[in-house]
């Protein structure tokens, strides 16, 4: 814990709504404690803005412990800011120095329209899931859980893939604004487990079709997504997706 406070110079993207053009505004924030989280620093700025009668900066946030995936802004060119495997809410101001200039931008992905300031519309991710990211099993009496053994290594790997929080950092970081890591994580999660086998081929085909139609870019295997992923999902997932998809298209019966 440190008691030295900092003054920071922020350059924040302000945009009234998705129809109007945006621009950067400059703000000076004083008395920033190193123990603050990045969002708490923005809260403090918003309180200042409110007192000056100015429009508060809109940003998404909820759990503030890195699991809900709601928050996410690009900080000095890095989605979720500096530091490995952190979300914006987990980023603490001790990562910055007194007098630092910080550029804060929203996710810049055509498929994620800016709603206002730093808040973007990520419903495109829901649409990818909607296209097949599920197992079609109805509520009711499911079979006894232990009747279907799953090897520990497979379950663990599926869990690695299922850890995705859908924050959108992968697409934001990608040079091509591609959602491939997101799609790969969900397709991998379900393709690895025995429960996901029945719809495996259709799932990969349908989810990729949806993803392509939503206006995301194409993957060029650069790996910026895995660097930005707060849950450490690896681009080996994308290789798995590629073979899942290849298998799906070449051997499908539909």
């Amino acid at each position: 814990m440190s008691s030295n406070t900092m003054t920071l110079y922020l350059q924040v993207w302000r945009q009234k709504n998705s129809n109007e053009a945006g621009a950067f505004s400059n703000y000076e924030v004083a008395n920033v404690s190193p123990d603050m989280s990045f969002l708490e620093m923005l809260d403090m700025l918003n309180e200042d803005l409110a007192r000056q009668g100015l429009d508060p900066i809109q940003y998404d946030h909820d759990c503030r412990e890195g699991i809900c995936g709601a928050c996410g802004v690009v900080i000095n060119g890095e989605p979720h800011g500096p530091g490995k495997q952190t979300t914006t809410c987990e980023l603490h101001m001790r990562n910055f120095k007194n007098g630092d200039a910080i550029v804060i931008e929203p996710w810049r992905v055509k498929a994620f329209a800016v709603l206002k300031d730093l808040a973007v519309d990520r419903s495109a991710y829901d649409k990818i899931i909607q296209a097949g990211g599920f197992i079609k099993v109805n509520y009711g009496n499911a079979p006894e859980a232990n009747s279907l053994p799953v090897g520990k290594d497979v379950a663990d790997l599926a869990m690695d893939m299922a850890a995705c929080i859908g924050c959108g950092a992968c697409a934001a970081a990608c040079k091509n604004a591609s959602a491939m890591l997101f799609a790969a994580a969900k397709i991998s999660h379900l393709a690895l487990l025995p429960q996901g086998q029945v719809e495996r081929k259709k799932r990969a085909a349908n989810m990729i079709k949806a993803m392509d139609e939503l206006g995301f870019g194409n993957c060029t295997n650069q790996g910026l997504c895995e660097d930005a992923c707060p849950k450490g999902i690896n681009i080996n997932a994308i290789a798995r997706l590629n073979r899942e998809y290849l298998d799906s298209i070449l051997t499908c019966n539909f």
Binding site: P149, A155, D156
Partner: peptide
Amino acid sequence: AQGVPFSR
């Protein structure tokens, strides 16, 4: 059944 990867 829904594919929740419980620890095993």
